[in-house]
């Protein structure tokens, strides 16, 4: 069979920086998400440095005040100043998200690599456990766990732990799938044939190529951790003394805030959560565009 010698036409690339900006201009969701997240970080850091954070707890200030110069976000029924409450709430939300999301991703990467790379009974074991656990609504199990804890024991870190308990399955399956496809790729076979050990292949060859997926997994896990902790708090299962954003909404709702005209009470944390979850969702969408080039928009 005669085939012509095929040579690909070489397309001359403009500079990397220019390409990156052209890319960001098209990947608006990534850009916007990053900007919002950065804004929230600046707000939180500024607030932690300047505001009196002790006012974030009950009986600190005059209660039920609408937003004013003195109380930019108003005060609630229990005498909390809602501005420092927001700052502390944002900080705690970030803490839960990063701790639970980060640990969930680490566990996921670890298990995913073991399952995908070594295969065999370990793989079927890990995959089996994940497939049995996934149909069980994780949130409800979290409700059971959080509900079984003594309310006085519940802290930000127990919250993070409860969320983490069920946050590792999805990253595990995602990383496992990627490791499985990557194992078949040529550069891995080449490394194997040239006598590179398992650890060398995992850390030297595969890990660098999986970084986009690991980053995407981390953002997604953080998103679900924030989501889950928020839902638990809205059901009154959060650390009750802390001004966690979900707790504030729950407290406002139990005191019928809208009905009594204290609209500022739930609105602040609601908008903050919209911004956090919205920006994370935008970043996830943007990263998805990178790791899944077929979704990339054409100019």
């Amino acid at each position: 069979m005669a085939t012509l010698a095929v040579s690909q036409p070489q397309i001359r690339q403009p500079g990397q920086v220019a390409l990156f900006f052209r890319y960001l201009r098209r990947n608006k969701s990534l850009a916007v998400g990053l900007v919002i997240l950065l804004g929230l970080c600046i707000f939180t850091v500024y607030g932690m440095l300047t505001a009196d954070l002790s006012n974030a707890y009950p009986l600190s200030v005059k209660s039920k005040q609408p937003p004013s110069l003195e109380y930019p976000l108003g005060t609630d029924f229990f005498g909390r100043d809602l501005y420092p409450a927001m700052v502390v709430g944002l900080w705690q939300t970030a803490l839960i998200g990063i701790v639970a999301g980060g640990l969930g991703t680490v566990i996921g990467v670890f298990l995913g690599f073991i399952a995908g790379y070594f295969g065999g009974p370990l793989d079927s074991g890990i995959k089996g456990i994940c497939s049995v656990l996934i149909p069980i609504p994780a949130f409800l199990i979290q409700v059971v766990i959080a509900g079984s804890l003594d309310k006085r024991d519940v802290t930000i870190f127990t919250m993070a732990f409860v969320v983490l308990l069920l946050a590792w399955m999805v990253p595990t399956l995602v990383i496992r799938a990627q490791v499985l496809t990557m194992k078949e790729r040529q550069f891995v076979s080449v490394a194997k044939l040239s006598g590179v050990g398992d650890l060398g292949i995992i850390f030297g060859e595969m890990m660098p190529n999986l970084i986009p997926f690991i980053v995407a997994s981390f953002v997604a896990a953080t998103f679900s951790a924030v989501f889950a902790s928020f839902y638990l708090a809205v059901l009154g299962l959060g650390p009750l003394r802390e001004p966690l954003l979900g707790n504030t909404i729950w407290a406002a709702q139990t005191q019928s805030a809208f009905f009594n005209g204290w609209w500022w009470w739930p609105m602040g944390p609601a908008i903050a959560l919209v911004l956090i979850l919205g920006s994370l969702a935008l970043i996830i969408m943007g990263l998805d565009e990178i790791s899944n080039p077929r979704v990339r928009k054409k100019e």
């Binding site: 005669a2 012509l4 010698a5």
Partner: peptide, 25 residues
């Protein structure tokens, strides 16, 4: 192109076309 086709005379000799195709840009 025609020379690059295998035939019985130059069996086993693979003849390419020197150089690469230019960029359409």
């Amino acid at each position: 192109l025609i020379r690059s086709l295998p035939n019985l005379e130059n069996k086993g000799v693979f003849q390419g076309i020197p150089g690469i195709a230019p960029s359409l840009l």
